[in-house]
């Protein structure tokens, strides 16, 4: 469905220091630097896949999504989405895709969302019956029946985001690019959005690429993740395998009925946190069973769970590894 080979996107950026002198100098002489937003990445995505696109700020995630949706022209490389070259922005291509950006909106600010839905129906040439069915379904699933008649500017962020998603799906896109769709939403709204996105993917077989800084979004939605950092692809595979690679240790969470001395806990594994009634131990995978046995026999345990390390920690460790590798490479290059 999506194939990307050797994609590069470089920007020319005007740089100048702050201050009046620099502002005046920039009138006559400007210094430009080239920013490598994406620097030669390749991947393929099958129809119906849900893929998480991860990376720190400025990694090149959004740039890649913009190239895939035809907004940006690549500097180099070959990109195809369902057989189309996105930069040509053919009508048939644009009718198959949608990019939802958490920080940009297509809803008409001064009018109720229902007007944007109607506008999209006309622009995407959606047959009336299909439009009615889709709208009823979206209104029901996203619970926006009371909202679509109010001016957009009077809706809360979460309400707006739900209507934004509905507007994006009126034409039932086969490929959905979601750029931080849950940004700024409360926990329950985030969960609603995740459930809805997953249902849409399963019902219509839509291919989905998601970027999010909320790891819960990624864990709930994306069996596969692609990690980019400084424009380079640093991982492409299952989320489970990524966690195993970066943080193979498991977390044993113990709920205790009485206060236990830290030294007793440290004898079982690395003590990550120790608060009243709860202790979290980090242990190697092959030592999990033994640790559990020892904990159950020697400590006042009322409950016990075994978990992976939180995704946030896994990702920050991966990014730190990448940074260290880059520094090492830079130092090894002779001046």
């Amino acid at each position: 469905m999506i194939s990307v080979h050797g994609l590069r996107k470089h920007y020319k950026v005007h740089k100048r220091p702050p201050g009046l002198k620099a502002a005046l100098r920039s009138l006559f002489h400007r210094t430009y630097t080239s920013v490598k937003a994406v620097d030669g990445i390749s991947f393929d995505i099958r129809p119906g896949e849900r893929v998480g696109f991860l990376g720190p700020n400025g990694a090149g995630k959004t740039t890649t999504l913009k190239v895939l949706s035809g907004l940006l022209h690549p500097s180099e490389g070959e990109v195809r989405v369902d057989g189309h070259v996105p930069r040509l922005r053919e009508e048939a291509f644009l009718k198959k895709i949608m990019l939802v950006m958490g920080q940009k909106q297509q809803l008409l600010w001064d009018l109720p969302p229902a007007e944007t839905f109607e506008l999209n129906r006309a622009i995407y040439d959606v047959p009336t019956l299909q439009y009615k069915q889709t709208l009823d379904e979206l209104v029901g699933l996203l619970e926006i029946g009371d909202l679509i008649g109010k001016p957009t500017r009077q809706l809360s962020l979460g309400e707006r985001m739900k209507c934004e998603l509905a507007a994006a799906l009126i034409h039932r896109p086969r490929v959905l690019f979601l750029d931080e769709p849950t940004i700024g939403l409360d926990v329950s709204m985030q969960a609603t959005m995740r459930t809805f996105i997953k249902d849409y993917n399963e019902k219509y077989g839509a291919t989905l690429i998601l970027t999010s800084h909320y790891m819960d979004d990624v864990a709930a939605l994306c069996p596969r993740v692609i990690v980019i950092d400084k424009g380079l692809l640093s991982y492409d595979g299952s989320l489970e395998a990524l966690v195993q690679r970066v943080r193979p240790e498991k977390r044993v969470v113990l709920r205790l009925s009485e206060v236990v001395d830290a030294s007793r806990l440290e004898s079982l594994g690395k003590l990550v946190t120790h608060e009243a009634g709860t202790a979290v131990l980090q242990v190697k995978q092959d030592a999990v069973n033994a640790t559990i046995s020892r904990a159950l026999s020697g400590l006042p345990v009322t409950d016990l769970t075994v978990e992976n390390a939180p995704l946030e920690e896994v990702m920050s460790e991966l990014f730190a590894e990448n940074k260290a590798r880059r520094l090492q490479t830079a130092e090894s290059v002779p001046a």
Partner: peptide, 11 residues
């Protein structure tokens, strides 16, 4: 950057 939303439409 809001021109992006117009460019995404097939018109």
């Amino acid at each position: 950057g809001t021109l992006a939303m117009r460019l995404l439409r097939p018109i």
